[in-house]
Amino acid sequence: MTVRVVVADDQAIARQGLRMILESGDDIEVIGEAVDGLDALGQVQRRRPDIVLIDIRMPRMDGLEATRLLRDVEGVQVIVITTFDLDEYVIEALRAGAVGFLVKDSPRERIIDAVHAVARGDALISPEVTRRLLDQFVSNTPARAGDPRLAELTPREHDVLLQLAAGRGNAEIAARLFLEESTVKGHVSRLLAKLGLANRVQAVIFAYETGLVVAGTTSEGREQE
């Protein structure tokens, strides 16, 4: 199934470069280009893409505000793409609903793989960079220990949340917890609903902000039923 993408960046050369990269991959079609966040919203309304690949720093409406508005558009996922991997606004974009982020000088294969990963609802983008970003920004936020929403999770959902916080995809979580991949998908959907979160990235941020995961460390959860 072809993944339909809109690319939003105020620099024409950046848009053209991303188009060339994406369309060199299998089953990806760039169906629109936007020059800023406001243009991106219009492109989404007209073209209904699966994914919007959006820069943060743009005129009129930046990628952060556009991401907030796109969060409620059914069937559309947002990937933020930045010049610097520790851009101060990236964590806010993730909180706003972006499913992950890339840096503009990422290898061609990583950009293509990222789009396919998001299209299938799988792992975080560039998990090693995402973890470093979260370590830097979320570690400076006081943990909300004892968040009552955690009590709503079953032990297995708690384990899956820990695995999500480590940046793992469904297949890897299934292998580590000795579950079927379809079962993992079900656990992810239920825990997101219970926690009132939009996507997997917000689940990672939640795990950090509640102190379930401490910045700079990992937690594995239980390895068996």
Rank of each mutant, 00 (worst) to 15 (best):
A198Y: 05
I205T: 12
L195E: 06
E157P: 03
E172K: 13
A198V: 06
L192W: 00
L179C: 06
V204I: 13
V201F: 12
G169I: 04
N170Q: 14
E181S: 10
L161M: 11
F178H: 05
L195N: 08
L164N: 00
L164T: 00
L197W: 01
N199L: 13
V184G: 07
S189T: 06
L162W: 04
L192I: 14
E157Q: 15
G186N: 09
A203S: 05
E181L: 10
K194V: 06
R176C: 00
Q202D: 04
L179A: 10
R168Y: 14
R190G: 03
V184P: 09
K194R: 14
R200W: 02
E172Y: 04
A166C: 11
A175Q: 09
A193P: 04
A165N: 06
V204M: 14
A193Y: 02
A171Q: 12
R190L: 12
H158R: 15
R176D: 08
K185G: 14
I173L: 09
L161E: 04
K185S: 13
E172Q: 14
V188A: 01
V204G: 06
G167A: 08
L197M: 04
Q202P: 02
V160D: 02
I205K: 09
S189I: 00
L177D: 02
V188G: 02
K194A: 05
V184H: 03
A165C: 13
L177C: 07
Q163N: 13
R200S: 12
I205G: 01
A175L: 07
L164Y: 00
E157I: 08
T183A: 15
R168F: 15
V188D: 01
A203I: 03
V184R: 00
L179Q: 12
G196Y: 10
V201M: 15
N199H: 10
A171F: 08
R168A: 07
